[in-house]
Design a protein around this nucleic acid. Sequence first.
DNA 1: AAGGTCTCCTGAGGGC
DNA 2: TGCCCTCAGGAGACCT
Length: 277
Amino acid sequence: MPELPEVEVVRRGLLDHVVGKRFATAKVLHPRTARRQPGGAAELEARLAGAFVSGIGRRGKYLWLDTSAGALLVHLGMSGQMLIKSGAPEPHKHLRARVLMDSGYELWFVDQRTFGYWHIGELFDGVPELVTHVAPDLLESAFSMSGTVARIRRKRSGIKRVLLDQTVVSGIGNIYADEMLWQAQIHGETPASALAESEVSTLLEAGQDVMRLALEQGGTSFDSLYVNVNGQSGYFSRSLNAYGQQGRPCPRCGTLIVREQFANRGSHFCPRCQGTR
DNA sequence: AAGGTCTCCTGAGGGC
DNA sequence: TGCCCTCAGGAGACCT
């Protein structure tokens, strides 16, 4: 379940292998990977062939390669992986797209559940056209703490739902939402508008801390579904305090962590530390 | 308009 | 052993 730290791990992993390199040929193997692309797989393949990669950008969970043919936007969805392969790689059941680079390496997009996609298009104010509606993420320089706090406090929805809204602040998914709420001791169903300014800023700062820590540990993963470009898993799952911890003692107070359905998601929290809503 | 729900998808895991 | 059901979740589509 790639969220900001996992996508950043992928971005960093790709830097050495694709920046300054040229794509020779590209093949899109599953129509859903090209579903957002006008012209579909054929258009992606045609535009990527011969493209030179000059950099890699990211906002929240969105990743893009700056190329001479436009920005190749990559969304990993639920299960997407960008893998670097060399030699004669073993076939993969869920390989959805592959690019042969002039370096001899291959770039693979493996995506079991096909929620991910590729799209090539133009940049607007430095971000791909499909990302213009996405707010800055917690770790980028364009992020405004005061502006985001004010925006969140104007919402009447439960705070967790607001955290998951990528147009308010990006990069947060179900795992990090639960972790930052646990850290800030706030119940996810608390109406955003009921939180004090200081509570919201504490919450967002908790999100920054959790994400920086996760990044240091190579991201979160529970199995082989999320891996870096070399196919390795991160270690942050060992540090989770709330997500997936139902039935285990809260590391802060010892009360058993509870799992409930809200914000349309499985939500994990400590009923004592995060008891009031 | 904003907020909430449905839907896409595949494999894992539970129940029997 | 095997079948069927449910669940996981990012985010756009769609509804109210």
